[in-house]
């Protein structure tokens, strides 16, 4: 028998936190991006850089243009103005979603989960592996099983997505986006409708993807509280305009941000 004290076991199990490398070169550069729905300006001249290897949070009140921004980056909507430049200085504005995913390696999840309902969980994560060139059926199955096991869904691989609970669907959606071999991952409200436990699992998945695969991650979320310990920087949107960019601590003390959330009178009470 191997004898080991509990302390030694703890040392053994303690995961070494890898040093995260955030390079200075931006992987995405968003310049003067504007989207109008008729008279309404949903996103107004948004300009910011996303650096390789970082976790970037995007927050803002309802209707501030967070999801519209994601839709424009992932090619679902076409912006009126502005440019989105990748690492190789290619403008991806106006390109199709398929091309953005396959060639420029920018994948996304959806605010409301969109699983392939009648397909089994395993088939759901097989689909992003299909367009990756020639591969034997065995390789395809191994790859998709690996993707499914990464999000702890192994025991539910034969369940049709229609009967899975919401928490599982959120993780399935995450696995599907990750399976595209993305370099940039756009997570649209990954915590919406989740319990505390499920939220914790999603946080772990995001950290794993970022640390072990070096995926750059952008998260849209309403709640600053959930992002505080996760993200490196936060972009705050209000009515389509970027009002602040900074670390979570800076953002939580920023007067403009507090005003945009609480209104002027209440914010004066908070700051005093």
């Amino acid at each position: 028998m191997i004898k080991m004290s509990i302390e030694e076991l703890d040392d053994e199990l303690e995961l070494e936190e890898k040093e995260r490398v955030i390079s200075d070169t931006p992987i995405l550069r968003i310049i003067d991006l504007t989207k109008k729905f008729g008279e309404l300006i949903a996103v107004n001249k948004a300009t910011f850089d996303v650096y390789q290897g970082e976790i970037l949070g995007i927050i803002g009140p309802n209707g501030s243009g967070k999801t519209t921004l994601f839709n424009m980056i992932s090619g679902v909507l076409k912006p009126e103005e502005g440019e989105i430049l990748t690492k190789k200085n290619e403008n991806i504005v106006g390109k199709s979603t398929t091309k953005i995913v396959k060639k420029h390696k920018i994948a996304r999840t959806f605010q409301i989960v969109r699983p392939f309902k009648l397909l089994q969980a395993l088939d759901n994560v097989t689909i992003p592996h299909i367009p990756k060139g020639l591969q034997s059926p065995k390789t395809l199955k191994t790859r998709s099983l690996t993707s499914l096991l990464e999000v702890d869904m192994g025991e539910k691989k034969n369940y049709p997505a229609a009967i899975l609970p919401h928490g599982d669907l959120k993780r399935l959606d995450f696995a599907r986006a990750l399976a595209t071999d993305a370099e940039v991952l756009l997570l649209d409200e990954p915590y919406s409708g989740l319990s505390v436990e499920d939220s914790f699992r999603i946080t772990q998945l995001i950290k794993n993807a970022n640390q072990e695969k070096g995926v750059t991650i952008m998260i849209v979320e309403h709640k600053l509280k959930l992002l505080a310990n996760l993200v490196d920087r936060i972009v705050v949107l209000n009515q389509g305009k970027i009002i602040a960019i900074g670390t979570p601590e800076e953002i939580s003390k920023n007067q403009v941000v507090i005003e945009s959330y609480l209104g002027k009178e209440a914010s004066s009470i908070v700051s005093s």
Binding site: V76, S96, P115, F116, I127, T180
Partner: peptide, 10 residues
């Protein structure tokens, strides 16, 4: 099942 999700999967 879902055309947009299929596009987003490449």
């Amino acid at each position: 099942e879902d055309e947009l999700a299929a596009k987003a999967s490449g």
